[in-house]
C-alpha cells in the first residue's frame, strides 16, 4: 500500500473492496498492528498508533481474520481466550452471551472447538473478538463461511450494537449484499484508494471499477 490517506469517524460502518492482493487485508493488519507501515503513520484519535501499547490496542481494535482459527480446547475457552491468556478464569455467562450473539447455542460451550464445522468455527472466532468489546471491529471476509441467512442476521445485530455504542466497523468483503449495509465504501486498487463513497454511489454506478471487481469476485452474490 502506498500514498493512502483517509479518516474514519467513530461509529462509522465502512466497507473495503478491492481485487485479490490489492491490500485490503494489509490495511486491516496495519490497523490491528500485526504489521507496521514502512512509511507514514496511523492515528487513533489524536495519538500515533505506533506510540500506543500494542497489546492494549489489539483489545481496542479487534481483528476477525478471514480463515477461521480455533485453539485446542473447548468452545467457551476459545471465546474467553483473552482471559486464559491473562491467566484468569473467564466469566462463562459473558462468553455464552457472545456465542448466542453469533447464533451458536449455549450447549456447544463444552464441545471441542476443533470438532466444529468451518462455519461454526468462524462464528466462534467472531465471538472471541466480540468478547473483547473492541472500540473498532475489523472484519476480514469473516462471514464468507456463513450461510446468507446467518451472516445477514449477525451483521444486522452487529450494526445495531456498534451504532448504538458509537463503535466502528471496518468490513472487508466482496459480497454486495453485505457491503450495502455499510455507510461508506472504500475501493482499493493496487494499494491506492481508487474510489470512495456511499454504497449506492459505488455499487450502482455501472462505470465504477469497484463494481466490476465485485462482479468478477462474487457473481452469485451480486
Amino acid at each position: 500500500m502506498r500514498g493512502i490517506h483517509f479518516g474514519i469517524e467513530a461509529g462509522e460502518y465502512v466497507g473495503v473492496i478491492g481485487a485479490s492482493g490489492s491490500g485490503k487485508s494489509t490495511l486491516l493488519r496495519l490497523l490491528n498492528r500485526l504489521e507496521d507501515p514502512d512509511k507514514g503513520t496511523i492515528h487513533y484519535g489524536d495519538d500515533d498508533m505506533a506510540e500506543l501499547p500494542v497489546i492494549e490496542m489489539r483489545h481496542r481494535i479487534g481483528l476477525v481474520m478471514q480463515k477461521p482459527v480455533v485453539f485446542p480446547g473447548s468452545v467457551i475457552d476459545n471465546v474467553l481466550m483473552h482471559d486464559l491468556i491473562a491467566g484468569r478464569k473467564g466469566d462463562e455467562n459473558w462468553g455464552c452471551k457472545w456465542l448466542e450473539f453469533v447464533r451458536l447455542p449455549r450447549d456447544l460451550m463444552c464441545r471441542d472447538a476443533a470438532a466444529l464445522s468451518v462455519g461454526q468455527q468462524a462464528r466462534v472466532q467472531l465471538a472471541r473478538t466480540l468478547s473483547l468489546e473492541p472500540e473498532v471491529l475489523l472484519l476480514d471476509e469473516c462471514t464468507a463461511n456463513l450461510d446468507e441467512k446467518n451472516a445477514g442476521e449477525i451483521l444486522s445485530d452487529l450494526e445495531g450494537l456498534f451504532q448504538s455504542e458509537n463503535r466502528t466497523i471496518i468490513h472487508v468483503s466482496h459480497q454486495q449484499t453485505k457491503l450495502r449495509r455499510c455507510r461508506r465504501l472504500i475501493y482499493i486498487e493496487d494499494g491506492l484508494i481508487a474510489a470512495s463513497g456511499t454504497p449506492t454511489a459505488i455499487l450502482d454506478d455501472p462505470g465504477n471499477p469497484a463494481r466490476k471487481v465485485l462482479a468478477t469476485q462474487s457473481p452469485s452474490s451480486s
Binding site: N32, E56, H59, G62, V69, F71, P72, I85
Partner: peptide, 20 residues
Amino acid sequence: RERIEAALCVGATSQQAVAP
C-alpha cells in the same frame, strides 16, 4: 502462522502466542 496471529489478535504477547 495463522494460529499465532489469532492469539496475538486477542492480546497475547509473542511469547504466549508461540508457547505451545
